[in-house]
Design a binder for these strands. Structure first.
Length: 273
DNA sequence: ATCGCCTCCTGCGCGC
DNA sequence: TGCGCGCAGGAGGCGA
């Protein structure tokens, strides 16, 4: 379940192998991802990767000197990218190979096929999936006042609110529960009823959990190539996620699980009001 | 505009 | 041991 930290870790892991390298050939074994893999992508050959970036959970590979073409990759629920040797044995769900001029392959693997590999020749910032996104959670553009302002009169649960990519990107189900615990806010509370002070705390908590997870992901980068190992962010101590009926680490009362917005949500009934 | 529900898909854990 | 079932989850899409 790649959350933002794993996407960032993936970017750092693949960058040394892709930057200023050519994609010599793309082999697609399974086109049926979230959206069908386009024929334009199929026909890409001998394009130099001139930049790699991340926006939200999208990985962006820019091609050519002018960067007029881009490959957009989303890992969905179960996607991963690995750098493998070109004689590496194929595993089930290895859907796309990007052959590189360094003689290695960047291999896209995705059992559930919720992910996407897209091609565009428009400016990335104009792309329909990108152009309406909220700020990056670790950037200066993201802060409590932003959340407070955007949430006035909103009735949606604050947990759904912070998971909405138009408000802030990259807050997945695990870290939404964790950040709300750290800031002492009930996940089901209407976003418009959360105070400015609470949003200050919440923004800080989001930065903290995501920043910490990225840092831990970075420590396992050495295992990235040719490895199926779990990313390091799983080592992060979870305070509430998946801890139904276990004692709160602060007050010992039982952690509760409730479905909010079709998603399991975990919180402490005493610490979060 | 906003909200909430539905959908895509496979692997896994559970009960029997 | 094996089967069938239900659930998990990112996020776009859609109907109300």
């Amino acid at each position: 379940m790649p959350e933002l930290p794993e996407v960032e870790t993936t970017l750092r892991g693949i960058e040394p192998y892709l930057l200023e390298q050519k994609i010599t050939r793309i082999v697609v074994r399974e086109k049926r991802l979230r959206w069908p893999v386009s024929s334009e992508l199929l026909s890409l050959t001998n394009q130099t990767v001139s930049a790699l970036n991340r926006r939200a959970k999208y990985l962006l590979l820019s091609l050519g000197r002018q960067q007029t073409e881009h490959i957009i990759i989303h890992l969905g629920m179960s996607g991963s990218l690995r750098i493998v040797d070109n004689n590496s044995e194929l595993k089930k769900h290895d859907h796309i190979d990007f052959h590189l001029s360094c003689n290695k392959i960047m291999r896209y693997h995705d059992p559930r096929r919720f992910g996407a590999v897209l091609w565009t020749d428009k400016a990335i910032s104009d792309h329909i999936l990108i152009n309406a996104l909220g700020p990056e959670p670790l950037s200066n553009a993201f802060h409590g006042a932003h959340l407070f302002k955007a949430s006035r009169k909103r009735k949606v649960a604050v947990k759904n609110f912070i998971m909405d990519g138009h408000i802030v990107v990259g807050v997945g189900n695990i870290y939404a529960s964790e950040a709300l615990f750290l800031s002492g806010i009930r996940p089901g509370k209407a976003a418009g009823r959360v105070t400015a002070k609470q949003y200050e705390d919440l923004a800080a908590a989001i930065k903290k959990v995501l920043g910490q997870a990225i840092k831990q992901g970075g420590t396992t980068l050495r295992d990235f190539v040719n490895s199926d190992g779990q990313p390091g962010y799983f080592q992060q101590t979870l305070n509430v996620y998946g801890r139904t009926d276990e004692p709160c680490r602060v007050c010992q009362s039982a952690i509760k699980c409730k479905v909010i917005g079709q998603r399991s949500t975990f919180y402490c009934t005493r610490c979060q009001q």
